[in-house]
């Protein structure tokens, strides 16, 4: 495992921890898109079906279980927790996320590494992950005051994506037969979606003012 991959996994892990911290200690999910969290729960459920068929490493298995468990519990908290669910910005979080799933499924049926159930689900999870952040970015644009934890959550997620791109470049040049076009293209699309947000995030950080996105 190279340093980019490890750093990518760790920033991904931290992003989830930041979100759980916000939910557990502050008992608030203000500014967090349930739509995006539901998409992530679906992304990890469909991608990690190979938990039952392929053993890669203890690290791999534990991380998969963490991402599965955390994404499902975040959705549960936002939907059902007596206190947390009251802070959910339901009226602002209106992105019709189910509409993203059908094109992703069709694309996965057409473009996959092999036409098997696991491979189609794997491709579907990558296409869906690429666009899963969209409801969150839309919610951020609508929410006037973005708290630090929400900003840090998205920042960490973006860092995770960028580090994975560096990891692919590194692996391409150091490993033989390391080619994953579906992962790369959908990963780059996903990373580009964050670029716009980061532009405003760093501007506000540079000027030391609260993050405010244009309408």
């Amino acid at each position: 495992m190279n340093i980019f991959r490890l750093a990518g996994d760790m920033t991904h892990l931290f992003s989830v921890l930041v979100l759980l911290l916000k939910i557990h200690t502050i008992k608030s999910c203000a500014g967090i898109s349930l739509k995006t969290q539901e998409l992530y729960a679906i992304v990890f459920t469909t991608r990690y079906l190979d938990l039952f068929t392929t053993y890669i490493s203890l690290y791999n298995t534990i991380m998969k279980l963490i991402f599965l468990g955390s994404s499902i519990s975040i959705v549960w908290y936002m939907r059902h927790h007596k206190v947390v669910r009251r802070s959910y910005d339901k009226d602002q979080d209106t992105f019709r996320h189910y509409l993203l799933m059908l094109p992703c499924l069709l694309l996965a049926l057409l473009i996959n590494e092999k036409f098997t159930f696991l491979e189609v689900m794997w491709a579907f999870s990558l296409y869906l992950e690429a666009v899963a952040i969209l409801p969150q970015l839309v919610l951020l644009q609508r929410t006037r005051n973005i708290d630090n934890l929400t900003g840090q959550y998205v920042l960490l997620l973006g860092a995770y994506r960028a580090l994975y791109v560096l990891n692919w470049i590194y692996r391409y040049f150091t490993e033989e037969n390391y080619v994953h076009w579906i992962t790369w293209v959908s990963g780059i699309v996903q990373t580009l979606l964050y670029a716009d947000f980061f532009y405003y995030y760093f501007q506000s950080w540079k000027n030391n003012v609260k993050l405010q996105l244009p309408a």
């Binding site: 996994d9 392929t54 490493s57 791999n60 991380m63 991402f67 994975y164 490993e175 080619v179 994953h180």
Partner: peptide
């Protein structure tokens, strides 16, 4: 090139 097939990334 062919894919290695092993999906060890998260």
């Amino acid at each position: 090139a062919e894919s290695s097939g092993l999906k060890d990334e998260l």
